[in-house]
Design a protein around this nucleic acid. Structure first.
Lengths: 302, 302
DNA sequence: GATGGATGTTCGATAATTTCGAATGAAAAT
DNA sequence: ATTTTCATTCGAAATTATCGAACATCCATC
């Protein structure tokens, strides 16, 4: 089996399994049967001639090679989408603003930050694309996206000459389904030892911050699910799987939309969102609107 | 038909057709029948919902969209190869030197420039990968290659903090099969009006330089074939399709290997080769060997 | 410990995709 | 005008993806 048989589907299945942490959930999300996913995952491993997951019991965990492969897969996939998007709007190029959204950023936050670009006198077309920071940075320097929305600035050590614009910050609140919420609200945060928790993965700023916060208070909750996509966490939280964290600015929205209740706020954690662009002096009107008006939208005190 | 059915094969076929300029030659190189290529190309166009080639008569020419798509395809493909390479040698990471070779650079030149890395006391593994400058730059900043070999420096305007190291330079000579050579050698370069010529594409430094050289002398040869890969040009030249240019340092080798003869030198053109790296202060032993010893290898006077 | 539910995998059969042979039309070459 | 070369269309054959059924494990619970 050779590399040329590699299909975008292989990569996609692999990515979803890696994100969801299980073939069963992945098959659910992809509307496919588990055997298909399992089989395709195996052919992918055969083609690359390497183990992507460590099978310990029925638990799938990414190997080191798997983590590397995942980065590639995300980038390749993102390029595929970018290609499709750009080809169709080659003519309307001036009126569009291509934004890369790091998949750590909650969709609702992204929407609020991007909204200013839609309220211009001359409304422009937003082309959104998600992906890992690495993938998006590649597209930024290739001028395929005008802007990246991320949860951290790009540090000076990197060999990319890009500029960070702080868009706003928010506190972190903890939510859960009504029954769970009422149980843990009484003794917050002290009573969270052993409480079921849904977390962003460690390599995200949010995930690392939350774990640090717990460690500092010598509380060790039971991490039930770990994933990159925050929308997924919200859904699991809504289903009552465990407690989960979200931006304080979204308190009202989360309670209304997902029927969850507020447990408390994680004092001391501030989540910041950044726009990353190639120019310090921003000329693109859409990008300008986003970077200028953003601070108003995420109010600093909530 | 959805994007998920997109196969690496589609992209590969498309790339080869674009390079070769014809389905027939592509099918030859890929050991496939023309109808397969034609069909797959159509499928790709359907999936992307855009015309990649302009069909004027039986001539295929890239559309604007096609050119964009080609860049994406090259990058995606390059990533796929990079993934495969890196996954297998994740452990031996210290001993390997990953080099990206811009596909404009003649293979033989690349070999000469890279040879020093193989003659170290502790020999290391060279991992070579070809691709467009854009694709390779992306891999450089992602630290997937240690070095890029290119025919031009990266200019300060780019948003990548990378450093150029001039490796050497050479003149440009013109060659052809014996019969052609004897015909055009007498009156060189004056008698080249209307002479059949094989050229690197305009967007390469070499191609642009050669065309400028002719324009300056008010000579207009008949461009017979235009392609990126210099090895392909050599092969066509060997077959007697037309005159072609190559680095003067390779005069002896080209005459011996391809049975072609020297027609003359294009005085005034200097072709330069550069190594591009992320660090100004180079620590990687392989990269060090390449950048330090290279100048000796392409002697400046030839 | 045994049991039941959830999960990952294997094995054929079926559906979908890719490839090629034969044939067609149309553009260059002679 | 004739031949050659090229791209495409239309089926059949080969290859690949998907699913249903059955099986093997692991984990929680009784």
């Amino acid at each position: 089996m050779k590399i040329h048989n590699l299909n975008f589907r292989h990569l996609r299945y692999f990515m979803v399994v890696a994100q969801e942490g299980s073939i069963a959930r992945a098959s659910d999300r992809l509307n496919l049967t588990p055997q298909t996913i399992s089989g395709q995952l195996k052919t992918l491993e055969d083609m690359l001639d390497i183990e992507l997951f460590e099978r310990s019991g029925r638990r799938l965990e990414l190997t080191d090679a798997g983590r590397q492969a995942l980065e590639y897969a995300e980038e390749i996939f993102s390029l595929g989408e970018a290609m499709q998007l750009q080809l169709h709007h080659a003519d309307t190029v001036q009126r569009t603003c291509a934004v890369g959204i790091a998949d750590v950023v909650p969709k609702s936050i992204a929407y609020r930050l991007l909204a200013p670009a839609l309220e211009l006198d001359e409304p422009l077309r937003l082309e959104c694309r998600e992906g890992s920071m690495e993938a998006l940075l590649g597209e930024l320097i290739a001028n395929r996206v005008d802007l990246i929305l991320a949860d951290r600035p790009i540090d000076a050590g990197t060999h990319v000459r890009a500029y960070n614009h702080l868009l706003g910050e928010t506190g972190i609140s903890m939510f859960a389904s009504p029954s769970l919420a009422s149980r843990y609200r009484k003794d917050f945060p002290g009573g969270l030892d052993g409480a079921p928790l849904l977390l962003p993965t460690d390599d995200t700023v949010a995930g690392a911050n939350i774990m640090k916060w717990f460690r500092a208070r010598q509380i060790t909750p039971l991490v039930q699910v770990e994933c990159v996509d925050s929308a997924l966490i919200d859904t699991f939280g809504q289903a009552g799987i465990g407690l989960f964290c979200g931006p304080s600015v979204l308190e009202a929205e989360l309670q209304r939309q997902h029927g969850v209740e507020l447990i408390g706020r994680l004092e001391g954690i501030r989540e910041r969102y950044y726009a990353i662009s190639l120019e310090r002096q921003i000329r693109h009107p859409g990008v300008q609107a986003i970077t200028h008006r953003a601070r108003e939208l995420l109010s600093v005190d909530s």
